[in-house]
Design a protein around this nucleic acid. Sequence first.
DNA 1: GTCTATACGAAGATAGAC
DNA 2: GTCTATCTTCGTATAGAC
Lengths: 210, 210
Amino acid sequence: MGSGSADSSSPSASAPVTAGAAARGPRERMVIHAADLIGRDGVAATSIGDVIAASSAPRGSIYHHFPQGKTQLMVEAVRYAGDFIATRIGSLHSHTAAEAVADIGGLWRRMLINSDYEYGCPVLAGGLARRAEPEVAAVADEVLTQWAELVSARLVVEGVDHGRAGSLANLIIAAIEGAVGLCQTRRTVEPLDKVIAELSALCEAAVVGP
Amino acid sequence: MGSGSADSSSPSASAPVTAGAAARGPRERMVIHAADLIGRDGVAATSIGDVIAASSAPRGSIYHHFPQGKTQLMVEAVRYAGDFIATRIGSLHSHTAAEAVADIGGLWRRMLINSDYEYGCPVLAGGLARRAEPEVAAVADEVLTQWAELVSARLVVEGVDHGRAGSLANLIIAAIEGAVGLCQTRRTVEPLDKVIAELSALCEAAVVGP
DNA sequence: GTCTATACGAAGATAGAC
DNA sequence: GTCTATCTTCGTATAGAC
């Protein structure tokens, strides 16, 4: 289907990387699989046909569930992927800022390896598609803002100075996003591992002593 | 043409962001404009027709110049974009590691603003297209390795410890790549500016005293 | 080297039956 | 809600003339 899909239309579709609880209806499955495909191939290379094939959804009801077609599907998928990560950031068990960063890094590490380095960040992919799909990029923008606030707040809780937290959160998000892209390109977790190590050390140093 | 091109086929095509010296032949123009379009729309959303329109190249000789079609054009474009940045890294006038990082940041800052936040990194875009275009991603991998070596060597020259330089170079590349993506998504240079500030400080701290 | 014409397939979207 | 056409546009690639 899409020029960018390797074999997403193969009979045995594997479960999407972000699939937590089993989705109930076809509509929800479509959104989840759309997010998965966007993370792998990007917005432009993900066709509606790809999503249908991957989610085993009925062909005839796409425009019933998503009246605005592909754009709406992509928008909801990026939102879903954003919420997925936001939830993880919000429910981190770690007790220091350095640990929290390492935990998020570990999450991405697993997703990269589980997908054989095919799956990257659907939110970044959505943002990069701004020319063709401005509405999708707008959602990506919102998600990124939310993430930055979540990370920043967390850093403050762990003892990082208010003024520094915003700048550090921005670096953490940018560096992890970039590292995930490098890992996809190079098919190794090395870039991410190195980035997490540097970031963790930086967080430790940024915590004000008691 | 491409579903991802906003108006690259408009009559007055603007000069590509990476255009240094004027290109001689149509072939070279095609490669340069292909790199430009990949940076804006990604590999999948960049069609051969888009490149022809942007570079005012003759339609009839694409497969004469690029026998392997789109893949070859994308491969050469990513290589071109990689060499463009590599050259800049290699000819930095800065005298400290922190300054060098700030200079590279300034280069990206200009390209983002000059393109109204449309132009991002073609090399990262090439790497993210691995599923559809493995050969393009392979070149992106090579370029990324070259960049890392260049940055690392430069850090060592500026006084950063050998063991640390590799890790720091990786962070610098990942963070800048990620930040550029964030800037494209959010239509601001803020993410990049903040990242450069943090990175510069980190570089200063990493330089061993005389 | 460059042109036109054309084959072929994929993708988004709609209409109307069930 | 879901299905099956069907329309239209686009994109890659090739063939053959000039």
